[in-house]
Design a protein around this nucleic acid. Sequence first.
DNA 1: CTGCCTCGAGTTCG
DNA 2: CTCGAGGCAG
Length: 669
Amino acid sequence: MATTSKLAPAQRAEELRALIDEANHNYHVLDAPEISDAEYDALLHELVTIEEAHPELVTPDSPTQRVGGAPSSEFPPYRHEVPMLSLSNAFDEEGLRAFDARVTRLAGVKAAYVCELKIDGLAMSLRYENGRLRSAGTRGDGTVGEEVTPNVRVVRDVPRTLRGKAPGAIDVRGEIFMKKSDFKRLNEARAAAGKPLFANPRNTAAGGLRQKDPRLTAERRLSFFAYAIGAFEGLEPPQTQHALLAYLRELGFPVNEHATRCASIDEVMAFCKRWETERESLDYEIDGVVIKVDELELQRKLGYAGKDPRWATAYKFRAQEARTKLLDIGINVSRSGKLNPYAVLEPVSIGGVTVRMATLHNEDDIKRKDIRAGDTVVVHRAGDVIPYVVGPVLELRAKDARVFQMPERCPVCHSKVDRPPNEVFSYCTNVACPAQLVERVRHYCSRGAMDIEGVGDVLSAELIEAGLVRDVADLYDLRTGQLAELPRMGEKSAQNVIDAIEGSKSRGLARVLVALSIRYVGSQNAALLAAHFGSVDALAAATQAELIEVEGIGEQIAEAVAFFFQQPPNRAAIERLRAHGVDMTAPKRERAATGALHGKTFVLTGTLPSLTREAATELIVEAGGKVSSAVSKKTDYVVAGEEAGSKLAKAQSLGVPIVDEAGLRALLG
DNA sequence: CTGCCTCGAGTTCG
DNA sequence: CTCGAGGCAG
């Protein structure tokens, strides 16, 4: 480490900022730290010292101005009589077993452990005297934190007075955090009020505790879990960690229900693995598991190694968030001509996968989050969920970061772009835009539409590029010889594609309507139209007024459908499909009004053991039931499989009956 | 007119 | 899966 230079403060501050920014970049973006955490802290500390002595040198983009990182003198210091712990970390099974081996060696016996979820919030110490809350402070450096008593008093989970036999004095340690559901609600309210959004629950909770006006803290609806005690006077303390948790519960504190006593390190490992996969199902964020030796006597015997206790460690989950550089904002043109901005990211590994791209939804969303090309951004990816850009790291914004502007011309065909009033999306106005055509062909062949195997995005693009396809009806004129000339296409693959195209002719009217890319017409509306009109000719001849007659079809959809069939190119394409023998009639299957599930609405979620989603849907529909996409009060049953998501939670909160595959089969009879 | 309940559309990586 | 927006009942 370079020795502190004797430069003028202004120069040294500038130098420090550059060093810190580079360290941040190496750490967060390149994932290759060049300096240790301690060295980093030393740099930051030196910068803080200079800035405190020379406030005029503080720049808005200084690393010290980071939310939550800025030292503050707004709150009085709060000294912890018994220091608050820092924990050693284990990042994998090996680290955990090494921890256990050391405990066993030093203790001379196999220890039992208590596993607790590591809540991603703020560690606090609450002092109660004669059963009443006296004061509360943040963890700080473990010895001295900040006193935030008035703010903690408005946290509902924190009891003002203790229940049962209260000790003379007690420091209760725990975590202040924000529930995901409360965070979501708060951000929805802020969005509605046009205010900037909060990035994540943790920072929002931290900001909440640092409010000068406790009423603002109260608005954030913070929560609390207790998990330890510090100084303690009066009563004899419990002798094990799990008894201690039970005792805290008796005193009236919320204690996390998932804390579990484990007799061996194998059980500990199983607990960690389980919650690493199930963390999404919780209504609060966790970033790991805290493992403590259960016997307090044994804890005392093991003691400390420096600041860290030898009797506890934190198993850290793989991060779900990372910082990376937003290299550029690109634009996709969808089949409807919608321009969809997406982020081109410097590849970054999150939870074991490399993320290179993320959608940015629409222009308003980018503006709301103030995301600019060249920014360092926070990218979030939870479990198997699609990654998204949370927002920019403002203090790392480069001067040349570029404000996003929706282009005025289509990036593919250069036609004019139109953003209809009161809509958030912009559209390419050229219906013949090659990008749109590729997407329409791809959609035509996709599973929910004509289900032509072998034609995906790559082949669709090649067919159009080669001039073999100008509209979807051209697919039926393709010859194996033409296909075989395309890259990575042999005789065999070409024949398979031709066969698949041939096989698509008998899908029926509803699927054809889905496949045609008529605005607002997806599987459900296509089924309504097909059942009502019976043939493409009857539908094409229908006036807007006649279309509105159909249950579930309103003005907008009617207009879109009528408009589609008025366009001469569309009419021509349909004539050619007919000439090729594509079935465009609706099979007038009598839907049993007597089926076992008649009038019942189902929602599917998760993966069923032996049925695909399509197969389950078919069984339900055959029996007269209906499958819809979202859970509501009108839902009769939710069929849940493995890794069920938010729909299961919704069903539980609405009291909708939940069945598994066996339960569904039982209902089918 | 408001507040459900729906449906449509787009979505990343391996 | 989530968001935006259409349809419809109250």
